[in-house]
Nucleic acid binder design. Structure first.
Lengths: 168, 168
DNA sequence: TTGACATTGTTAGCTTCCTAACTATAATGT
DNA sequence: ACATTATAGTTAGGAAGCTAACAATGTCAA
């Protein structure tokens, strides 16, 4: 995703809007601000995770496993839930297995299947990361009270319901 | 950045909050929704750009060049403005130059420097992409009126000013 | 029963991001 | 004047994303 260190000035937006009459200045501005804040949050999250020797993709896989009663799931399910391809998931699991945070268990019934299981070492790593992550997140969102958070989510919902307009 | 196809249910959040008392449920929820919408928007943008044979990183470089009066800039400046390292910018420029959208002009005065210039072909590509992008963006943000957009930006500002709390 | 199809996971090769190290050039201080 | 330091850009190697192709295994219908 774009990093967007340098958002357009009002002058720049105006200049672009002159050349491209399709431009809706406040729409562009809101969109870019949203992406900007999201990427800033994502970078901050990266930094937090790296202190614990994790990267976003791998960390999210651990969380998905911890959500399961059995602490295990299949690569294809994990790929769907994480929003990546199965090929990408293979790579993430390779890394996690190499670090001993996860183990592959081959299914004897259906020999195409593999079960991915969170190891005790993986659980321990999460127990180390999550309190830190949650504490930081609490501080980060402290600027908004409950009502504002609800309002933010409502507005995000309005956008989300129109995202397919972008694609179509 | 994470794709987050599968946000946690209230039950899952509750379960995690029991294990990790640092968790602030509404903070987590708002944070994840924000990331989710941003990544959805980013994917939609990807799809739009790919129809015109562009990728986000390269597209943004073209925009940064078009902002300049001279239609040119330096790799290091572009890297700063795009929020990527100079090494990454080298790679982006390699691709853009190979496609003829940009040209490298070596500085005779200071022989360390290279000037990157948007070619007429690069400008033409932008003229093809931008109206499409702006039209889609307009539709996508149509769910929010001007007041709501201003409100959204204000709330994003509140979060942005606390992002460093995440890092520190 | 066997031929066609579907599913699971992997590999291979590309892009884009990173950090660290390097080359070449310019600027500066003693 | 010359050694040090700073700057500009690149290269090398890694991670994480993609698509496309593939092997192995199951399933199902004729």
């Amino acid at each position: 995703m774009l990093q967007l260190r340098d958002l357009p000035t009002p002058e720049t937006l105006h200049k672009f809007a002159q050349r491209y009459p399709e431009a809706d200045i406040s729409a562009i501005s809101s969109f870019l601000h949203l992406l900007r804040v999201a990427t800033d949050l994502s970078s901050a999250l990266d930094e937090c995770l790296q202190r614990h020797g994790l990267l976003q993709g791998r960390w999210w896989v651990l969380i998905l496993l911890m959500r399961e009663e059995s602490l295990s799931s299949m690569p294809s399910t994990l790929a769907d839930k994480a929003g990546v391809t199965r090929a990408t998931m293979t790579g993430l699991l390779d890394g996690l297995e190499r670090d001993g945070l996860v183990e592959r268990i081959f299914d004897a019934q259906d020999r195409r299947r593999v079960s991915i299981r969170l190891t005790t070492s993986g659980q321990a790593r999460l127990d180390q990361v999550m309190p830190d992550y949650y504490s930081r997140l609490r501080l980060c969102m402290a600027g908004l009270d409950e009502a504002q958070r609800a309002q933010l989510q409502a507005m995000l919902g309005h956008i989300a319901s129109n995202v397919d307009a972008f694609t179509r």
